[in-house]
Simulated scan of single mutants.
Amino acid sequence: MVRTPLTPEERERGERLGRLLREARGGRSMAEVAADAGISAETLRKIETGRAPTPAFFTIAALAGALGLSMDELAARCVLAGVV
């Protein structure tokens, strides 16, 4: 299966998500948060750096839970400015 290339907007949204998660992680280690979410530290690293700009819904839900974030807030903050 061939994936279609991501649009610049999708890449930017992925980078924004990564920044939000990194900020929410604060002083906690990447390994600690990843373990709490039930994912690998490498997966979290890829999301935080934008190398995985379209992670699975359940991965983001698990990270939100581990970081005490609301999915609504994450979604709202990841939408591009001016897009509803």
Rank of each mutant, 00 (worst) to 15 (best):
L21K: 04
L67G: 06
G38K: 09
A34W: 00
E9W: 05
A37K: 02
S70M: 07
D36Y: 07
E9F: 05
T4A: 15
I47K: 05
A37Q: 00
S29G: 13
P53G: 10
V84D: 13
G65N: 07
L17N: 00
R22Y: 09
E10M: 12
G68S: 11
I39C: 08
A61Q: 05
A61V: 04
S70Q: 12
M30P: 01
V83D: 13
S29W: 10
S70R: 12
A66T: 02
E10I: 06
R11W: 10
R16E: 01
A81K: 15
I39N: 05
P53S: 12
V84R: 15
A41S: 15
R19K: 11
R13M: 09
D72M: 08
G14H: 02
A62P: 03
A34L: 07
A81R: 14
I47H: 01
G68M: 09
L20T: 04
M71L: 14
A37S: 08
R51W: 08
L20N: 05
M1A: 10
E23L: 11
A75Y: 07
L74A: 04
G38W: 09
A56P: 00
G65H: 02
G26R: 14
E48I: 04
R28W: 14
M30F: 07
M30G: 08
A76L: 13
A24E: 06
E48R: 01
G14P: 02
R3A: 15
R28Q: 15
R3D: 13
A61H: 05
A64C: 14
L44H: 04
A56I: 01
V83A: 12
P5I: 00
L17Q: 01
R3P: 00
R16D: 05
T59M: 05
A64W: 05
D36G: 10
R25C: 00
G65A: 03
T54D: 12
A34V: 03
E9P: 05
A31R: 14
A61Y: 01
A24T: 09
G14I: 03
S29N: 12
V79D: 10
A61P: 03
L67W: 03
A75S: 11
A35W: 00
L80Y: 00
L67D: 02
P8W: 01
L69I: 07
L80M: 13
I47D: 06
A52E: 08
D72K: 10
I60V: 15
A35T: 09
P55R: 07
E42M: 09
E42K: 01
E9T: 09
A35V: 05
T49K: 14
I60A: 03
R19F: 00
T49P: 00
R28V: 08
E10T: 07
A37H: 04
L69D: 06
T43N: 12
V2W: 10
E42N: 11
T49M: 13
K46W: 04
L80K: 14
P55F: 01
T49W: 00
